[in-house]
C-alpha cells in the first residue's frame, strides 16, 4: 500500500506519519490516556460521557414499537398484542435475532 506513489500535489510537502500513528481506534486512545495518570478533576473525552441511566428502561414491542406488556419466553421478543404474537410464530430466526440485537439483548449462546 505504501509503495503506491501518492498523486503529486504541489501544496504538500513530503510527510508521513510514523506507521503506527495513522490509525488508532478510540479505545486505544482511551487506554493511553488512562495510563497517563491525569489529575482526577481534569475532563477528558472519556470522562465527559453520559452516565448510565438510572431510570428503568421502558419496554416496547420489538415489532411494532407499541408499549409491550408481554414477553415471549421462547424467542424473548416483546409483543403488545395477540396479533403480533401470531406473526412472531412464523418469523424466521434471523429476524428474531435481528430484533434482539437491535435492542441489545444478546443471548449467551451466540
Amino acid at each position: 500500500m505504501d509503495s503506491l506513489p501518492k498523486p503529486r500535489r504541489s501544496f504538500k510537502k513530503p510527510f508521513a506519519f510514523p506507521k503506527n500513528c495513522t490509525y488508532r481506534p478510540l479505545r486505544q486512545i482511551n487506554n493511553m490516556e488512562r495510563n497517563l495518570k491525569l489529575p482526577a478533576d481534569q475532563p477528558t473525552y472519556f470522562t465527559i460521557k453520559a452516565p448510565p441511566s438510572l431510570l428503568p428502561a421502558k419496554k416496547y414491542s420489538d415489532i411494532s414499537g407499541l408499549p409491550a406488556p408481554y414477553v415471549d419466553p421462547h424467542s424473548k421478543l416483546r409483543y403488545s398484542n395477540s396479533d403480533e404474537y401470531a406473526s412472531m410464530q412464523h418469523m424466521p430466526s434471523d429476524i428474531i435475532n435481528g430484533y434482539l440485537t437491535l435492542r441489545g439483548h444478546t443471548s449467551a449462546v451466540g
Partner: peptide, 19 residues
Amino acid sequence: FQPSMIGSSEAGLAELIAF
C-alpha cells in the same frame, strides 16, 4: 430520549440535562 431502545445504557437527553 431513550437510548435503551437501541441497547445503550446511557441516560437519555432529559435525564442528562437534569444530571
